[in-house]
Design a binder for these strands. Structure first.
Lengths: 186, 186
DNA sequence: CGCAACTATTCATTGAATGAATAGTGGCTG
DNA sequence: CAGCCACTATTCATTCAATGAATAGTTGCG
């Protein structure tokens, strides 16, 4: 069924996206990624080359030119038609909101309710809330700072709404836990 | 600095948490995980045994009893004092809200703004919003369904607030993109 | 008896992620 | 001009995460 050989990860598709503007080599891609995708975790070099290798293997990019001019030898990569098609299809495909939730925060609270008492969970929730509020303040400052381009603002927005979501969840969870005095275990 | 040998992942700590109630073997742990942590992605068996192996290697659990009674041979594992300490410290440690944002949704929109025009991004955002609204409806239904225990409700809450956060972000991003007619590229 | 379903674990493989190592070039400084 | 540092560019070794299939024994049942 999958005409797509691989290139499953988000990282792979982001690299394809960066290559859409023209051929680049690994080092440039790392730089481009880190500055064009604000708030994304910086890409490790090893990751870049490993991913490029898989993309090449799958025919989504090709090596083009082993330039040597001034500096170490480097290999540039370019999108193939298949790579471009893969990128377009990824961009058009809707992300079905994940059926599963994967969050350390949620896992921790769930485990706390299993192994500890509601009191401990409450203490934790309150402390966690404080940390979130603090972080939210920082982020808001970042956003209102001058010199932010569209991408940066959008990324900051994203971080903010989710931080806010965590906060609201912490609050209602706190209330829920408060209501069930003690008898938490099934 | 890290007295903690390894056991970095959330999964490892969740297993420690499940073992807090007493010794279990791999198969039981997988079952327990899947039913006690609602909305979490089901754990693959391979993952369970691999993680148990690392936990044992790091002295956080010990093998206790190679029971054979009725059924295939199985090895139960129990928390060591070090494992219990590790669990407690994990539970008490506040999750500092990640400095980075890792979300396919955000990455896709960022890439779309880089490689495509604002129009395409808008089309995508609208379609994505529709999918989210749909999913939100489903989840809300799940929560109000009868027979939900505290853990299930908390997990559903979590999913809902974040879905809602995505929706609000989609909306403001849509507006931002609409305001910048075309000239998006830096 | 034979077969399906369940319990329990292992294995092989791939991808993700990190950190350190390697290597060449240019420029600056003492 | 020798030595050194900073920068460009890639590779390597290693570990963890994740999936899917394989293996193997047991129980129950028709």
């Amino acid at each position: 069924m999958s005409a797509t050989p691989a290139a499953g990860s988000t990282t792979a598709h982001v690299l394809l996206g960066l290559l859409a503007a023209g051929p680049r080599h690994g080092y440039e891609l790392k730089r481009a990624h880190d500055e064009r995708l604000p708030r994304a975790k910086p890409l490790a070099y090893g990751q870049v080359y490993a991913t490029l290798g898989r993309l090449q293997r799958d025919g989504l990019v090709t090596a083009v030119g082993q330039d040597q001019a001034g500096g170490p030898e480097r290999t540039s990569y370019a999108l193939t038609p298949a790579g471009r098609a893969q990128l377009d299809s990824w961009l058009e495909r809707i992300e079905t909101p994940a059926p599963y939730v994967t969050s350390t925060l949620l896992a921790k609270v769930a485990v706390a309710l299993l192994v500890a008492d509601a009191d401990k969970a409450r203490t934790y929730l309150v402390a966690q809330r404080r940390a979130h509020v603090e972080r939210l303040r920082e982020l808001t400052a970042v956003k209102t700072a001058p010199g932010a381009d569209l991408g940066a603002v959008i990324a900051a927005d994203f971080a903010i709404v989710h931080l806010d979501a965590d906060l609201r969840w912490l609050q209602t969870t706190l209330e829920r836990v408060a209501n069930t005095h003690g008898e938490v275990r099934s």
